[in-house]
Design a protein around this nucleic acid. Sequence first.
DNA 1: CCGGATCCAGTGGGATACTG
DNA 2: CAGTATCCCACTGGATCCGG
Lengths: 137, 137
Amino acid sequence: MAAKNVRARVRDVPGPCARWGDDDADFIREVLDLVGDKWSVLIIGTLADGPARYSELAAAIPGVSQRMLTLTLKHLQRYGLLARTAYPEVPPRVEYRLTVLGRSLLSTVLALAEWSADNHAEVRRNQEAFDGATAVD
Amino acid sequence: MAAKNVRARVRDVPGPCARWGDDDADFIREVLDLVGDKWSVLIIGTLADGPARYSELAAAIPGVSQRMLTLTLKHLQRYGLLARTAYPEVPPRVEYRLTVLGRSLLSTVLALAEWSADNHAEVRRNQEAFDGATAVD
DNA sequence: CCGGATCCAGTGGGATACTG
DNA sequence: CAGTATCCCACTGGATCCGG
């Protein structure tokens, strides 16, 4: 597959305009579909250190509704980032854990989180400067 | 700032449930607000190799509407990832380029794109397997 | 305990037409 | 050329109730 080295391709383009192939755009969409929503990253991060039950996830992630937790879990499971194991006991118990694929995404996603932690102060300053500038003039 | 090492914190937690601080959740939101939408990453990637004009961006990014291009550009500019330079000529010319901050995000974001390029085949297989399984039984 | 079903408000984002 | 303004629809995501 030609898109293995997106970075190299983009930087090699000589002209002023690095045209995206539709493939590349699709890849971006794909990854955004995985982690671009409100809760996926939180769930993946929570599962980083080991399996967790549904109610543990609900407790660990502040503000998530049952609906969105269920939905996002299913979403991640569908893409193979999460494995779901239901134990047919009474009361029922369900465990979620990261797959190998999920763990590989974890490191990348945490890199993003670290970037945000490193730079959020500057981002806020920029916001305020921008808003102030547009408001003044 | 305490959240510099999100990864370390998450992995160090001994229990089954790594509770997110609200701070961490906020950081995630912040970064998703930056790159979680449909066009930001494409724009950042297009600007990777140098400045580009509005119309060049429009041409380079297939499927983007004027509205969304303008909106996303302003969004990225507000956060300080992009710089906008308008030349008061006739006809008007406007150039967008990545700031240092934007370039620092670029590498992280391209890592995501590479992950997606590497794993999208497996992701698709998982999707189909999942859909098939749920459809069968 | 887990999560499906339903209802509903807010918003993301496309198409189109217009302006400086 | 480089946007802005408006309409509109589909989807996201929260609250709540219900079922296994």
